[in-house]
């Protein structure tokens, strides 16, 4: 698991970790059952406060994305998201609104936005071995 922090972008570091782990999950770069690095290891690797890593892991755990196993470590959950479907759609609707608003400001047609989404989805899906 490789994370890259941008300390100057204003997002708290724990949130950057949460977002990047979510992205890695969505991109299939973290699979169910896979272990996340121990808190101290990740803290030393990224040169950040271990409490911050603990907080990010707690947040991921609360979202049901990872599970802490007593005395061993933190693992990617088998069941991806326990959130109800309507709840998940509601979360996504906010992001869709933001995207649509932005595209209107930038004068990008709706069809072009759809096309872009399709392109990005393709770029994000795990690559087939050559």
């Amino acid at each position: 698991m490789q994370l890259h922090l941008a300390p100057r972008d204003g997002l708290p570091i724990y949130r950057q970790i949460v977002n990047q782990v979510k992205y890695l999950l969505a991109a299939g770069r973290l699979a169910a059952g896979e272990e996340l690095p121990p808190i101290r290891t990740l803290a030393e690797q990224l040169v950040i406060n271990p409490n911050t890593v603990a907080r990010a892991y707690l947040e991921l755990e609360r979202a049901g994305l990872v599970t802490k196993r007593q005395g061993s470590g933190t693992y990617v959950s088998e069941i991806r998201s326990p959130l109800r479907r309507t709840e998940r759609l509601r979360l996504l609707a906010d992001r869709a609104d933001a995207l649509l608003a932005e595209s209107r400001h930038l004068e990008i047609e709706f069809d072009e936005v759809l096309e872009l989404l399709r392109e990005r989805a393709q770029a994000m899906s795990p690559k087939e071995p050559l």
Partner: peptide, 8 residues
């Protein structure tokens, strides 16, 4: 940026 990295 240093403070932001390591402080609680």
């Amino acid at each position: 940026d240093e403070i932001e990295r390591v402080s609680d």
